[in-house]
Amino acid sequence: MNINGDLIEQDQLHCALEEIYNLSRPIQCNFLRGSFNDHYSIDANGSRFVLRLYKHKKSQIRTNTDVRFELDFLEFLHSQGVPVAFPIRSIKNESLNTVYFNNELRYIALFHHAEGSQIGDINLSDAKIFGKIVAALHKKADQFKSEYSRIKMDQYYLIKEPLEVLEKYIRTLKLSDISFFKTCANFMLERINQLPITSEVFGLIHGDLNPSNIHYSPEHGFKIFDFDHCAYGWRIHDLAVIRLCFDYSTYESILNGYQSVRPLSSIEEKSIDVYSDVLLLRKSKDILDMLEVNKNSKEEKTTVVINAIETLRILNERLLC
């Protein structure tokens, strides 16, 4: 069966999987979703996996060494008992492999299936357990060493770059300028600059701990996956994403569980709220990146930019009132 667009034909994926991985047959392959990458559900004689095809031209992934960093990091976390969906190595003992499609080299990785389903409303007891897992991930990450590099989610990444990109789109699309946000941006920079860049508070993070990247089942517990945005950043980044995605009681339970394993400094704890607002600013850049990678229309990009300008107005009113 052919899939429209730049997705690889499923017949070709069958051949690649049979050649690259030691999987039981028969192998069934079904498209799951596409965003920054394309994902397929793989059934190999009853054993389930997820195949990722990495897309090119992503701002957070510069070369294949960035991907190798991610995969090595996942293998390390798994070896340390952190519940993550880690990669399957090929017949040649490689976690990152390649296929050709339309004369283009595509990088692929096969992952263990994350049992359970996307977390939604979880009870407060389970939320506390999840908080402990996130803290353990951060603490174990301090021990990880790699020959490869990964981006830093610093002040430029979080605040300056998204504004530069928005201003570029605004000029191209001839939309209203965002000069009104300058004072608010300076306020955000001032608050973020108060966070120290020390090993206690700045290190490897997941980068996108929203519910769609976390599965849960009563039998298997929690499983974290999709480390495509993992990076060096402030540890409260992951907590700020969680704060934006869950109701207050659930977030508080997750935070309590987290602090029972890794207590936050006072500056970290009081910075989570403003960091969450910073992530709302950064979100527009990430969405525009995804639209570029997937070759979306000018109209779709225009809608995102208009919504981003409105978000800036809301942030401006809230932070500077």
Rank of each mutant, 00 (worst) to 15 (best):
residue 235 R to Q: 06
residue 269 E to I: 02
residue 257 G to Y: 06
residue 236 I to E: 03
residue 243 R to K: 15
residue 250 T to N: 07
residue 167 E to T: 09
residue 273 D to E: 14
residue 244 L to E: 14
residue 262 R to I: 02
residue 249 S to L: 05
residue 161 E to F: 06
residue 182 K to G: 01
residue 242 I to T: 15
residue 230 C to Y: 04
residue 260 S to R: 11
residue 220 H to L: 00
residue 249 S to I: 02
residue 229 H to S: 07
residue 264 L to F: 10
residue 166 L to S: 11
residue 229 H to W: 00
residue 206 H to Y: 03
residue 247 D to Y: 03
residue 163 L to I: 15
residue 245 C to M: 13
residue 272 I to M: 07
residue 209 L to A: 05
residue 210 N to R: 11
residue 196 P to E: 05
residue 171 R to P: 03
residue 180 F to R: 08
residue 256 N to T: 15
residue 203 G to Q: 11
residue 237 H to N: 13
residue 258 Y to M: 10
residue 239 L to M: 09
residue 223 K to E: 04
residue 162 P to D: 03
residue 202 F to E: 10
residue 170 I to L: 05
residue 260 S to W: 02
residue 198 T to L: 00
residue 204 L to A: 04
residue 234 W to M: 02
residue 216 Y to I: 03
residue 173 L to G: 10
residue 188 M to T: 12
residue 176 S to E: 14
residue 256 N to F: 01
residue 210 N to S: 02
residue 261 V to H: 12
residue 207 G to T: 07
residue 175 L to F: 04
residue 245 C to D: 09
residue 253 S to F: 05
residue 227 F to G: 08
residue 263 P to C: 05
residue 249 S to E: 14
residue 169 Y to F: 13
residue 265 S to A: 03
residue 247 D to Q: 11
residue 267 I to L: 05
residue 221 G to R: 10
residue 206 H to R: 10
residue 168 K to Y: 07
residue 266 S to Q: 14
residue 164 E to M: 06
residue 185 A to K: 15
residue 227 F to C: 07
residue 229 H to L: 03
residue 219 E to M: 02
residue 216 Y to W: 09
residue 193 N to D: 10
residue 161 E to H: 12
residue 216 Y to V: 04
residue 196 P to T: 06
residue 262 R to L: 08
residue 180 F to H: 08
residue 267 I to V: 15
residue 195 L to P: 11
residue 170 I to H: 09
residue 183 T to Y: 01
residue 202 F to G: 12
residue 203 G to P: 12
residue 205 I to G: 07
residue 225 F to L: 08
residue 259 Q to R: 13
residue 266 S to N: 14
residue 201 V to F: 00
residue 190 E to N: 14
residue 241 V to W: 01
residue 226 D to P: 10
residue 187 F to R: 13
residue 260 S to K: 13
residue 188 M to P: 11
residue 192 I to Y: 02
residue 185 A to D: 04
residue 187 F to Y: 14
residue 258 Y to K: 14
residue 257 G to K: 12
residue 237 H to D: 04
residue 258 Y to V: 12
residue 234 W to Y: 11
residue 228 D to L: 00
residue 238 D to V: 06
residue 209 L to T: 15
residue 223 K to M: 09
residue 209 L to M: 11
residue 198 T to F: 00
residue 191 R to A: 07
residue 228 D to M: 00
residue 166 L to M: 15
residue 227 F to K: 13
residue 187 F to D: 09
residue 181 F to D: 02
residue 165 V to D: 05
residue 221 G to M: 05
residue 263 P to G: 07
residue 208 D to R: 06
residue 193 N to V: 00
residue 189 L to W: 02
residue 180 F to T: 10
residue 188 M to E: 07
residue 181 F to G: 02
residue 256 N to H: 12
residue 177 D to Y: 01
residue 247 D to P: 10
residue 222 F to H: 12
residue 206 H to C: 04
residue 185 A to C: 10
residue 210 N to A: 01
residue 225 F to A: 06
residue 163 L to T: 09
residue 264 L to S: 14
residue 185 A to T: 11
residue 170 I to D: 08
residue 214 I to F: 00
residue 241 V to N: 07
residue 222 F to M: 08
residue 209 L to V: 12
residue 210 N to I: 08
residue 239 L to V: 12
residue 270 K to F: 00
residue 173 L to H: 11
residue 228 D to C: 00
residue 265 S to T: 15
residue 224 I to D: 04
residue 226 D to H: 07
residue 167 E to L: 01
residue 260 S to L: 05
residue 161 E to N: 13
residue 269 E to Y: 04
residue 182 K to Q: 09
residue 186 N to S: 08
